[in-house]
Amino acid sequence: MVPTRRARYYTVGSALAAAIENSASTRTIVQPYTGSSVYLPLLPSGEVTIGISNALDFGRAYSDPANPIKELRALARIYTTPYGYLVPRSSGITDYAGLKGKPIARDLKAQLSLTSTNTALLAAGGLNEGDYEQVTIGNVQEGLGLLVEGKVAATATIPGSPQSQQTHATIPGGIRYLTLEDTPETNKVLGEIAPGLSTFNVEPGEGMPSIDAPVTMIGLHQFLVVGASLPDEDVKKILTAVWDAWPRLQQDVPSLRSATVEEMAQPINAAPYHPAAIAFFKEKGIWSDANETHEDSFAK
């Protein structure tokens, strides 16, 4: 089981590994790597059995024009992290149209996936190249710092994160997350620019003081990913273990509370599902016509 260097991935990976070990009587080792570009190529060979990756990263690896890893397979969507653009409430900006002509933190020097995510977000909000001043940042934290200093009109991050809450407390009047239209058209724009993205509705809740009304952001969908050669029997054991342990896993790991077990098969995968996963989801009654249509798209 391979989480990335991020603490959240490691926590989720450790919990899932324990569930698999307890259910399948199989020894598991949780091994951190520096990033998905390091461990995703190890999945097809079996050097790594399972990885946790967001749909953008493994979708880019699967579809890379220069060196695609076509042997990657989605196993299950396990949770979703909301992500969106925010502005100071005092700015008076209430929608994406209000950002026209303003400096916006968009490109990240070392995180290509977030650069494409931000570009897709702005386009889904109706803003294209030339509609705003593009500002390059080193990381998400730098973008929030520039927002506090008034050097950018908007930047993007995860709501409820410690950095987001600190920014909300630092800026007089707090921050506001901008909302997208939750429509097929919006999702089409997102998918065309950054395959694996879709709209995600966020409700007010504990730990998110900046959100006082429902807002539509995007979801960074996190998947279990394997190699195509992983035996069907192993896939079934893994999915059965996770499925059966899901209520307990949600109690122990807050990140997993954003998804129900029935949403494991959502048709938002950026690489095909493993055939044994499809069989498992059909057995559970959660494989849909939308899944079939989405799977067919990978053959084109």
Rank of each mutant, 00 (worst) to 15 (best):
R106I: 02
Q111A: 15
P214G: 06
Y96R: 11
I286G: 07
E206D: 13
S25I: 08
S23E: 01
E21I: 10
K100T: 08
R60C: 02
Q222F: 00
A169E: 07
A15Y: 11
Q31M: 11
S37W: 08
S210A: 14
V189D: 03
T157Q: 07
S255G: 11
F298A: 15
L86Q: 02
P214M: 00
A7N: 13
L122V: 09
Q111I: 14
P195Q: 09
I69A: 09
I20G: 10
N291F: 15
A299Q: 12
F298P: 10
L108V: 10
A124Q: 08
L147M: 01
T115N: 01
S36P: 08
V226H: 12
L178Q: 10
A123E: 03
N269Q: 11
E47R: 06
T170D: 15
S288F: 06
N67E: 00
Q141N: 14
G174Q: 05
F200Q: 02
L72H: 05
L72W: 02
T183I: 04
P44H: 12
D57A: 12
T240E: 00
H168P: 05
A76G: 09
T179V: 01
Q163D: 09
K282L: 00
A17R: 07
G160M: 04
S297N: 09
L86K: 02
K188C: 07
D182M: 10
G227T: 05
E262L: 14
A66I: 10
I193M: 13
A271L: 03
A17S: 15
A245E: 06
P231Y: 05
E185C: 01
F280R: 09
S161M: 09
V215G: 15
R248Y: 12
Q165G: 09
D107L: 06
T293C: 10
V215W: 10
D64N: 14
A7I: 08
L16W: 02
G101E: 07
G84L: 04
A110Y: 03
E283H: 11
N201Q: 01
S164L: 00
S258F: 06
A290Y: 08
T183Q: 03
I104F: 11
D107S: 12
L178S: 10
F58E: 00
K282Y: 00
I175T: 15
S229D: 15
G205I: 11
P195C: 13
D182C: 15
D232S: 11
D296E: 15
I137H: 12
E142G: 04
G285A: 03
Q222K: 02
A169R: 12
G207I: 00
A245G: 07
S288A: 07
R6Q: 14
A97V: 06
G173K: 01
S297H: 05
P3R: 11
I50D: 02
T240R: 01
T170M: 14
G191M: 03
P254E: 09
A66L: 12
S198F: 12
R89E: 07
A123M: 01
G92Q: 03
P184M: 14
R89K: 11
Y9E: 04
K236S: 09
